[in-house]
Design a protein around this nucleic acid. Structure first.
Lengths: 221, 221
DNA sequence: AAAACCTTTACGGATTCCCGTAAATAATAG
DNA sequence: CTATTATTTACGGGAATCCGTAAAGGTTTT
């Protein structure tokens, strides 16, 4: 059963809506914060006073402003929170539709649910909270499709490094040196060329510029 | 004075928060829709029954779903709405931070204000509505900086065409043919090369990939 | 209409990239 | 330890690009 909830969401509007949705579910013990660091502090404090939260609802991306923060995003917050309180349920509420991100939340960070800011998000939130309170997980259908679609190509750490370097203006022939400095293997020029070719073939692209544009669109870089 | 408001926002949560913010300002005559087409229909209907809206608050991007829509985004909605009711005030509420987009809203579409979904967006919304009701406009400070920054280089129709072609995988040497087909002048390969060089020099870039990445980030292509 | 100026295009050498093949190295199996 | 396989790297010829210079085509001034 979910009684005590913490909301970590920097958008005031979204934060308000989350509170309202929870109240409509009969959950009244709600704290809300606008920064990740505040969220972690609240979790620590409530744990020490034996009033642990049952659920954390968090956004993924938090805007930077004057206040310098240790934790800058939802993913890091989830990890830090679980270190403090491993049994904490986590529901992510974000606008992101990146398959890679959502897959990480599901598989690696072991979040209990994901609701995307979109049409009917309020209804879906209630549904998700309901399911989580019954020890179920909530990752919507369309994500499975997205993940499949994305898996037309798995962008490895290597791929992303190479494309990022290109997008930063690094000459192709200079990429091996940069890769070595970052300790990424392989680092040979031929490996870079081969991998770029593979990616371009996969997507039926002809030029690196296309690859950069695609990765920008997909939020991969 | 603003009495009657229409909200066009597909995210249920954001829509709810907008309603709440308006109510806190003492505005009670609120309609809300989740689709652009519905918004336009409401505007037409209310105008014909002499109960025109004073203000339209709209998002920019609307999610596609099963319902096929004629108007697919906030920009088109603004244009269509102004055709029906030229004196309609428009406040845009979106997560976009692209300078190009916001500049278009200000200069071309002549929106009355822009509030970004971010920290303190609820407060800013109220401020914006207050200003608009006093016949002022509300475009936040940081946008001016963004626009300035962007205007380090004026991207011409020619520039955008060339960079777009690159991002689509067109070989540089094939670009002249495409430009001619689109009736864009100049179209010589040397002109393309020269212009690319100028742009790269302006931004201190070394490669086309960098230019593509930048234009993607800025929403130029 | 000639001169001066600016824009666009043409050309060519140096560099970089593309791409196929082959060698070298690492990993796995027998 | 050797054989087999897979991965990584090296090499080289051809294509595309970068970049500087010069010619061609327009426009404005006098």
């Amino acid at each position: 059963m979910i009684k005590k909830v913490l909301i970590a969401e920097d958008q005031e509007c979204a934060n308000m809506s989350l509170q309202k949705a929870l109240e409509e579910l009969g959950i009244t013990d709600i704290d809300y914060v606008y920064y990740c660091d505040d969220a972690l502090a609240s979790i620590q404090r409530s744990k020490h006073s034996n009033e642990s939260y049952d659920l954390l609802i968090t956004d993924l991306s938090f805007e930077e402003d004057g206040r310098l923060q240790k934790i800058t995003g939802g993913k890091e917050l989830i990890q830090a929170a679980r270190q403090v309180q491993p049994d904490l349920r986590v529901l992510v509420f974000s606008a992101s539709r990146e398959a890679a991100t959502i897959e990480t939340l599901d598989k690696t960070l072991d979040a209990d649910g994901y609701v995307r800011k979109a049409r009917n998000d309020a209804k879906e939130l209630k549904e998700a909270i309901d399911k989580i309170s019954k020890n179920q997980r909530h990752f919507p259908r369309y994500i499975i499709d997205l993940v499949k679609q994305k898996n037309a190509h798995d962008f490895t750490r290597f791929d992303i490094a190479v494309i990022s370097l290109l997008a930063q203006g690094t000459l192709q022939k200079d990429i091996p040196a940069h890769l070595q400095k970052s300790g990424i293997k392989p680092s040979g020029l031929s490996s870079v060329e081969k991998r770029l070719n593979l990616m371009k073939e996969t997507f039926d692209f002809s030029k690196n510029e296309q690859l950069v544009a695609y990765c920008k669109d997909m939020g991969i870089i």
